[in-house]
Design a protein around this nucleic acid. Structure first.
Lengths: 350, 350
DNA sequence: TCCATTTATGGTACCGCTACCATTATAAGC
DNA sequence: GCTTATAATGGTAGCGGTACCATAAATGGA
């Protein structure tokens, strides 16, 4: 028989009609066991696979979802995508991968392309879109799950995030417990909800013990390692008086900062404590040992994948799904008890 | 008009036939400029996008390629995929991403799924398949490009690889120049062509100066960091007499080994020199500074993507494309000149 | 036994697009 | 002016499935 048998070829060889074969493909009832067995055998014999496009043409599910991330090269997203892929596999779903580099324009182009390819749903990690653009998407009846970053008004979307406020709080609390009173913050872009929330939690913890954050101790970064390095340099070089600890809005920047400190001959943690956020694999490296706030990235991927596909498979079952995961403090070796007042005095005059 | 206009809707509104609209979609000639403009305007007005499935049903190109990697979480593959994705974007191609975890069975399942979805081509990174299974694929007229790892007989496939033999040679040469005479090798799986070739080059360089590799100095790993750590431990603990340098078949293992050495109080590079292979971002970290052999992973991705799509777009133009990229030694800070004979004598008795 | 109901199957009209052929309008050649 | 290319368009049959209706056979209750 020809290389790519069609449903008609199978039907003919099994001596039934296309309809019957179609029924078997879709495990409909009302097919006698004998017929089913016979047809199945013919299918197996010819390695028959129904044509994906012919199926999709009917306007039904395609078994494909789109995954839009900032940059797969970033370990945060690669772990996330891995989580998504793993659950997709069990549902026999495929994923289209798209990188945006954080550019809204790219994101829109990719989404258009995904729509054109009639994906059943889309997972948007760290979306740059406003709730307005997103709502637009929903109207074109694509299932949608947001991960890691939310638009301002996210009340009507499915999402999976960590409790960033809680995470920031945990980080600050840890440093406070170690006696730190002046803690710097290496920020991500202020448009980004994770940055905003982490800072809010951080500030709250400080506020609870009567501390505050001086504006001088907030250094702007962009979530990338290099910006953390630069921020670390800046912080370290304010020699007359500097903080004894720093909380970075993510691990990449925390590692960058730590490198800056080491390079300047400072000892982490004794001269400067560092806390990050994310718990990327790199932080666990024996030469890094970063104390950080873990947000189980893989789980977020897996959960968002599962949420999306369940929503696709059972569109009417259940309303909006909004999942907020608890963060967890992971204590490694970049934080130390603050030096006694005298010792600190010798060094920084604070 | 309805949410998803069809070619017929556009045709009607523009006062032409489906055929004419179809011609314009496929930029065929034989359409008068006036008509073309009018139809284009109607399309734009309704944000018309031709239905992907209806198009694919005709048995033509789908604009999708499959990318099969071992594990996207591994920085080698995420950089590779990024390279692929970037060129796909300019061709307006989408990619399906698949992870196999290096399991042949998974790889086959994924490939079947890709075939079913009628991808125009497939990029197989580090394939576990034999030339036999691969040839099978070619017969189903899928365009194929292999990256990073080749089956034994690869004469009939398109591929993009680095010159691994040359890379191994470069690494060894560097160590030899620094005076090392006993160099250990942390191996990847012996079924893997990169491992085999790197070892071959390594051995050749040693042979050229009359040196050899003792079997005791070859430690088995699996390309993952943990196995490198274990290997490093094993190497370091042969206290009576140990090599002065180690070449690891990839960076992940090199970093793992380095960590083991540091943990045991050895000083890298002065007690032990380490060279890796790949040049993953992690190696550039200030606290790692791994001397390694760079194989421009991103470029490999970009080149393999371009090769694949060009092959799809112009199937008859040109034969098999086999690209072997030159590796480059990247000297950072994990190698030192070998201690003088007396000093080494104190330590290891060699 | 007969009619109603259920169960198993066949027939066919789409889904939205492209390929190919048919048709017309226009230009060119003599 | 009439024939013959050439350009611009329309008409329609698939591509390989699914959905829905029709039919035939089997079952069952009165």
């Amino acid at each position: 028989m020809k290389k790519n048998p069609t449903i008609l070829d199978i039907a003919r060889e099994a001596g039934v009609s296309k309809s019957t074969v179609s029924r078997i493909l879709n495990n409909a009832e009302n097919v006698s066991p004998g017929t089913r067995k016979r047809v199945l055998e013919v299918m197996l014999k010819h390695r028959y696979r129904p044509n994906f496009f012919a199926r999709g043409l009917g306007g039904r599910r395609t078994g494909v979802v789109g995954v839009v991330v900032t940059d797969i090269t970033n370990p945060f997203y690669s772990v996330l995508v891995r989580g998504i892929e793993d659950v997709c596999r069990v549902y026999r779903y495929n994923i289209y991968l798209c990188n945006t580099d954080g550019r809204e324009e790219e994101e829109k182009i990719h989404i258009d392309s995904l729509m054109e390819r009639k994906v059943d749903g889309v997972i948007l990690a760290s979306t740059m879109l406003t709730e307005h653009s997103l709502a637009d998407l929903l109207e074109r009846d694509v299932k949608l799950v947001l991960v890691a970053r939310l638009p301002e008004d996210h009340s009507s979307f499915n999402f999976v995030v960590v409790d960033n406020v809680m995470g920031g709080y945990l980080a600050a609390k840890h440093l406070i417990t170690l006696g730190h009173e002046r803690i710097a913050y290496i920020a991500g872009p202020w448009l980004s909800s994770p940055n905003l929330d982490r800072f809010a939690g951080f500030r709250r913890a400080l506020g609870e013990v009567g501390l505050g954050v001086d504006e001088k101790d907030i250094v702007q970064g962009d979530f990338k390692m290099e910006s953390g390095y630069l921020a670390g340099m800046k912080l370290a070089k304010s020699l007359s008086s500097r903080p004894s600890a720093v909380f970075a809005a993510n691990d990449a920047m925390a590692v960058g900062a730590k490198e800056a400190f080491s390079e300047l001959g400072m000892d982490v943690p004794h001269d400067m404590s560092v806390v990050g956020f994310d718990d990327i694999p790199l932080g666990a490296l024996r030469c890094v040992q970063l104390t950080t706030v873990s947000q189980s990235i893989y789980d977020q991927g897996a959960i968002s994948g599962k949420t999306l596909i369940e929503r696709i498979l059972h569109p009417d079952k259940g309303g909006i799904q909004q999942i907020v995961l608890p963060p967890k403090l992971v204590v490694r070796k970049t934080c130390a008890r603050v030096p006694t007042r005298e010792k600190r005095g010798e060094r920084s005059g604070t």
